[in-house]
Write a protein that binds this DNA or RNA. Structure first.
Lengths: 160, 160
DNA sequence: AAAGATTGAAGGGTCAATCTTT
DNA sequence: AAAGATTGACCCTTCAATCTTT
């Protein structure tokens, strides 16, 4: 598929995905600003649970950010009473993070507004197109994830 | 398309797009790190030209970032000898930014590596799927852009 | 030695205020 | 008054170094 005359340049494809992300992100920020939440803080809240705790390492892996970033985000969320650190009984190095009742309520409220906003924004596409897009994107995502550790880039990784 | 049983929740759709962006962005950073460039700096270089200058305002509009951010990015790029500020003859408030020969060479080199990297990463999809995706994403992007000024969000805009 | 987590220093980006020109 | 651009203060994120536990 690379050098076909009919093919779209990879750069243009990338540019579109990038534009969409920037546009969606801009809309997200408008929603999240009302709760004084950053995208990452919201991302953390969404991965958490009231019952089973998540390790900080797991969170940073899923959100592709540095370990120290998660530490500081949990610091803030804990200060705001939204989450709680619980020492892991089996491994005393690890901390498990759980949602407090307040955190759970907050997340539900934010998620509702966020989903409403998305529903409106994504209604650009028809149901058919929407489902097609979903299928294509899922395949792309899974493929990209599989590439993650294949080191197919120039130079080394930037993650700790 | 909203409350169909067959429909995919908007949040899940968003989550996938978000994941893809994070994955692509992570790959980009690995490429750009070799040149000590951030995504925004690269974005600016890509919008510039050796002949016709761009206003800083135009750049910040296209990249959806704050005016002051562009000012500082141009400061850095100018310090590195990649771009040059040229006072606008017709409007003495404005500055026009152009690529220096060094900047043009640098951009060509980065863009080549970036495109190669993208080519490899996006080869997950077949040509057919790739073209379909392109069509869907273009429609989505154009729609999102059209929404930009419709203020269909709770609360005010975050952009200056 | 390796993994989970945390801290200090530094860079990137934004907001609000300011200056100049229109 | 409004638009283009810049500066200072502040927040978010990352890197490198460190501590504890495995």
């Amino acid at each position: 598929m690379s050098s076909d005359l009919l093919s779209i340049p990879a750069y243009e494809q990338y540019r579109i995905i990038h534009d969409i992300y920037v546009l969606l992100d801009d809309g997200d920020q408008r929603v999240l600003n009302n709760f004084r939440l950053t995208a990452l803080q919201y991302g953390v809240l969404n991965l958490l649970d009231a019952d089973e705790g998540q390790r900080l390492t797991t969170l940073s892996d899923q959100l592709l950010c540095a370990r120290s970033t998660i530490t500081r985000i949990i610091d803030q969320l804990e200060r705001d009473g939204l989450v709680r650190r619980v020492g892991d009984a089996e491994d005393r190095r690890a901390q498990r993070v759980v949602l407090t009742p307040k955190g759970e309520a907050q997340r539900t409220q934010v998620r509702t507004l966020h989903e409403d906003s998305l529903e409106r924004r994504l209604s650009i596409l028809s149901l058919d197109e929407y489902q097609q897009l979903h299928w294509l994107l899922t395949k792309l995502r899974d493929g990209l994830r599989a590439q993650l550790d294949s080191d197919c880039y120039k130079g080394g990784s930037s993650r700790s």
